[in-house]
Simulated assay, not measured.
Amino acid sequence: MGTGHLTIDLDALVANYKALAGMGSAEAAAVVKADGYGTGVSKTGRALMNAGARRFFVAVAEEGAALRQALGPNADICVFGGHMAGDTDMISDLGLVPMLNSLDQVLRHFEALPGHPFGIQLDTGMNRLGMEFSDWAAVADIALAQKPVLLMSHLACADEPDHPMNAHQLEEFRRMTDGTGVPRSLAATGGILLGPDYHFDMTRPGIGLYGGQPFNEARTVVQLDLPVIQTRSLEPGETVGYGNTWTAERPTTIATVSGGYADGITRHLSHKGALWHGDIPCPIRGRVSMDLIGVDITDLPEEPKALSLLNEHQGVDDIAGQTGTIGYEILTQLGLRYSRRYAGA
């Protein structure tokens, strides 16, 4: 097989969900936007539903349509992006629950779909989505009379437990929602780890489900193996890859593996990343190109058929740390050329 092979461990995904859900008494929804953070929402969504998740969050209505097809009628599917112009039929026909973010969305939803379930998203300081205090105060009585199913906000700095923004947003959320009698949600993965003060009625684990930080105890969900296409022996002074950016200083064996930035393997791994053969790291040599990567296998006891980029030794956050980004980006950029296998669940 000439393409990389992506294995998604559904048992690990379910274990991560149950661990995060078990950290408090709140209902645990599941965030499955961006095609289940790149893992494939049809399979992962069904596994999470079988594990007990009944409410799911997606970014936009189009993602909700794909999820509804996978899960059927018995899941609540909430849309972070709210009720956008042109989404009315989709929201109505598929039974999606928009998280209304603005006065315009409130008016659009109430006029187009009176009586259809909705939630409200409030801005407690992130300045991204949601109604600020003044807007919410202006419309709260009208909105609450229509019986929203959820009031929610989102923490900006939950991955930094000691950041003062966490306490500020908690206080602001309480100021905007105390006494409403409506179920509330503030915590995604990082917020869950901040403790029960942040849990309210529902939590929304996302990245932690898929093995990412800040959930340190998460089980590895994704493994990526890249087949070796060719090996070659280099003498000292020979170079590897575009631009001659790496030069051998000793007799070296280079494996050329199938994978590159067209597959979501960032070019920033050039010269600093490694692939693994079992427990042995093998350094990347030269530039990561569109379809191919050179890897130093000189010290291996045998010539491998494949090398692993993501595994129990090296997760998405390890690669993110090497390349100056975050694990979310590494995970959601996993390419479409990979063959995929779902294990467990």
Rank of each mutant, 00 (worst) to 15 (best):
residue 260 G to C: 06
residue 263 D to W: 03
residue 78 C to N: 11
residue 22 G to Q: 05
residue 313 H to E: 11
residue 78 C to F: 15
residue 268 H to P: 00
residue 126 M to T: 04
residue 85 A to N: 10
residue 118 F to T: 05
residue 143 A to I: 00
residue 81 G to N: 12
residue 303 E to L: 14
residue 181 G to C: 09
residue 304 P to H: 09
residue 196 P to F: 06
residue 299 D to S: 14
residue 260 G to A: 10
residue 329 E to T: 14
residue 313 H to Q: 14
residue 242 Y to P: 06
residue 247 T to R: 13
residue 214 P to F: 10
residue 99 M to H: 03
residue 49 M to C: 11
residue 7 T to R: 15
residue 179 G to R: 05
residue 207 I to P: 05
residue 255 A to C: 10
residue 8 I to R: 01
residue 282 C to A: 12
residue 331 L to D: 00
residue 247 T to V: 13
residue 276 W to S: 05
residue 245 T to Q: 12
residue 167 A to S: 13
residue 236 P to F: 09
residue 151 L to P: 02
residue 172 E to C: 13
residue 276 W to N: 08
residue 204 R to N: 09
residue 134 S to V: 14
residue 264 G to Y: 02
residue 26 A to Y: 02
residue 8 I to W: 05
residue 41 V to P: 01
residue 142 I to L: 15
residue 130 G to S: 08
residue 25 S to T: 13
residue 244 N to P: 01
residue 190 G to F: 09
residue 70 A to H: 09
residue 145 A to S: 15
residue 318 D to V: 14
residue 274 A to N: 12
residue 156 A to R: 11
residue 32 V to N: 00
residue 197 D to T: 04
residue 57 F to M: 11
residue 213 Q to W: 11
residue 256 T to C: 06
residue 307 L to T: 06
residue 17 Y to C: 05
residue 29 A to S: 15
residue 297 I to L: 04
residue 111 E to K: 15
residue 161 P to A: 09
residue 238 E to K: 04
residue 117 P to A: 03
residue 215 F to E: 13
residue 166 N to H: 11
residue 182 V to E: 02
residue 58 V to P: 03
residue 129 L to C: 01
residue 62 E to P: 01
residue 223 Q to N: 13
residue 336 L to V: 14
residue 62 E to D: 14
residue 95 G to S: 07
residue 94 L to M: 12
residue 156 A to W: 03
residue 42 S to K: 13
residue 243 G to Y: 01
residue 328 Y to V: 14
residue 40 G to Q: 01
residue 186 L to V: 04
residue 15 A to Y: 03
residue 6 L to N: 00
residue 151 L to A: 05
residue 252 T to S: 11
